[in-house]
Amino acid sequence: MTIICLSFLIAGIFLALSNNLRDTARDLADNMTISFFLEKDATPQTTADLLKEVGRPAFIESVRFVRPEEAMAKFQATFPELRDILANLKANPFPPSIEARVRSKISTAEELVRFVQAMKARPGVTDVQFNQDWVEKMQSFSRLAKAVGAFLGGILILASFFIISNVIKLNVMARRNEIEILRLVGATNLFIRIPFWLEGIVLGLLGSLMSLGLLFVVIKVFPLYVGPSLGALQQLLNFRYPDLAQALGLLAAGAATGFTGSATSVSKFLKN
């Protein structure tokens, strides 16, 4: 049962990791903003024109003008440890900017890129910053984590299938005498099989249930011990506990593995 439990634990860890990456990617996509940095001495007319232009495309949800003071306040709030450096500066280094929020479901990434390129060339705009690359990388990283999880989990679940099958085979061998007697007194094959099937299902269920428990411990304990040393990676390597459907899926996979493992070994024995 330990092996069954460990197999499902590894599958569960990858599931939890890919859950986190998927959610992070979604959060990033949801919060995707484009910052258009303007010249410091941009006139109110230029700013107003640019605001209108940036807000025009359908994929832009909202636009907002960010004044230099506001930008500095935001920076100070985000990086409090750098507050002293800013205090020593004589002037505000932040330029005014326009922040545009992009709708979360954009189907036309190319159109967005074209728009950004066009805006970059506009007089009054010094630079443009947006995080689409990052979102796409996160999404593909999440897909990769899921694929690696499925592959390793799959191999391990296959291994646990053979392990369960062998455990049941040993049980069948140990109870060979009993099975023989049952056959002699007129038991049907189904009557003989059912207890072994149940045994396999219970083994698989208990193994996957234990793995869910261990996964819970891993998820709770991991940030306490390893978390701080990961620095910026902490956010990415954070585990998110499988949701109810995934947990039930793991349990069902455990039961199915147990059932199939026992069914094959009992069938082989009864045929002999």
Binding site: E178, E180, I181, R183, L184, V185, G186, T188
Partner: peptide, 18 residues
């Protein structure tokens, strides 16, 4: 074969008990 065996009661030389 269970159909045939259910008609019979068997006593074995080696008892075959569980």
């Amino acid at each position: 074969i269970w159909k045939l065996r259910r008609q019979m009661g068997l006593v074995f030389q080696d008892f075959r008990l569980m």
